[in-house]
Computed example of a mutant assay.
Amino acid sequence: MILEAKNVSYFYKSQKDKLILDNVNYSFECGKMYAILGHSGSGKTTLLSLLAGLDSPVKGEILYDGKPITAKDLTEHRRNHISLVFQSYNLIDYLTPIENVKLGGNGNPEALLESIGIVSEYWNRSVLQLSGGQQQRVAIARALASDAKVLLADEPTGNLDEATAWDVIDLLKRIAHEENKCVIVVTHSKELADEADAIVTIGKTHK
C-alpha cells in the first residue's frame, strides 16, 4: 500500500459535536484509480485534504509507504509524495501552459503536454486562451511534472462538458495503469466512478 487512512476521524474545531469523518480506514495502491463517492457534506474533500497533508486528522493517522506523514514536515509530504488536480484548474493565468507545467516539478513540459493531448501550437499561449478541457489537461500535466507516486484530483471533470470529461477520465486511467501512479479522484460523477478500479464510499469500499 502506498497511502493509507488509519482510524481517521475529523471534525471542525468550531463543531466538535459534528463528526465529518468517523474512524475511516482505507488503503490505496499504485497502478489503480480510485473514485471517492458520498453525498454532499459526507467528507469526500476533507478526506482528500487529509491524504494530501493539507490538514491533519483529529484522531488516527495518514500513512505513506507505511510511515506516518507527520513523521516529517507535512510540506515535504506535499512536495515529494503528492500531486494535486483541482476542479478550478488553479493555473497561473498570466503564464503559458509550458510555464505552468514547469511549476509542477522537473518533468519535461513539452513532452508532458504532448502526452496529454496539448499540441505545440498552444504551448506558449496564455492559458486564458485555452478551453476548459485544455486548461484541465494542463493542470494534469503540471501534476505529472512531479515525481510523486500519488495523484489526488478533486472533482476534475466537474466544469467540463461530457465529451471532454470522458477524455479526462481516460487520461486519469492511463496515468494510473501506464504510469503506475495511485490516482484518487473525488467525484459526483457516476460515469467516472464506474471507470475506476475501486469505488470508495464513505463507510464502504466495493468493486
Rank of each mutant, 00 (worst) to 15 (best):
I169H: 03
F28L: 10
T157D: 14
P57R: 04
N108L: 06
D161Q: 02
I169K: 09
T70Y: 08
L63Y: 09
V127K: 00
L37I: 02
S88M: 06
P57M: 04
Q135R: 15
E114Q: 13
Y10A: 06
T157K: 06
K18N: 14
K59W: 00
E178K: 05
I116N: 12
I20M: 11
L112Q: 10
Y89G: 06
F28G: 10
G105S: 11
V85G: 00
A143H: 07
G53H: 08
D170P: 00
E178Q: 14
A71S: 15
V168C: 03
A71N: 15
V119Q: 13
V119H: 12
E4G: 09
G107F: 13
I199G: 13
F11T: 05
T45R: 01
G133N: 04
L51W: 04
L21C: 11
T70E: 15
N180L: 01
I118G: 13
P57E: 07
D197I: 02
N7G: 11
V24F: 13
A196S: 14
W123E: 04
I82V: 14
Y122K: 15
A196C: 11
L152F: 00
S146L: 01
E179H: 08
L47P: 04
V200S: 12
K18I: 12
T157Q: 11
T187E: 02
D161S: 03
H206T: 06
G53W: 04
L84V: 08
E110D: 09
R79F: 13
E179W: 05
K18Q: 15
V24Y: 12
N108P: 04
Q134L: 01
T46F: 06
L103R: 00
D93P: 08
R78L: 13
D154M: 05
D197C: 03
R125S: 09
T46I: 11
K207D: 15
D93T: 14
K173M: 12
T70F: 01
Q135H: 00
T46P: 03
I118L: 15
G38K: 02
Q129R: 15
L84D: 14
S42Y: 02
A148Y: 11
K72P: 00
L171T: 10
Y12M: 08
W123Y: 13
I116W: 11
E114M: 12
L103H: 00
N100L: 04
E114T: 08
V8I: 13
A176R: 04
L144W: 00
V101H: 10
I116H: 10
V200K: 06
Q136N: 06
A139G: 10
H188K: 03
K173F: 03
R137C: 05
I20F: 13
H81L: 07
L112I: 07
A143Q: 13
A145Q: 02
Q129W: 10
V8K: 10
K16M: 09
E121N: 14
N90C: 08
E179S: 09
S9A: 09
V127Q: 01
V168T: 05
T157S: 14
R125K: 15
L144C: 03
I62C: 00
P156H: 08
Q136S: 03
E179M: 12
D194N: 15
I92D: 00
W166D: 14
L50C: 03
L151T: 08
G53T: 06
F11K: 07
G41Q: 11
Y10N: 05
Y122Q: 07
G107D: 11
L47Y: 12
D147W: 07
Y89L: 09
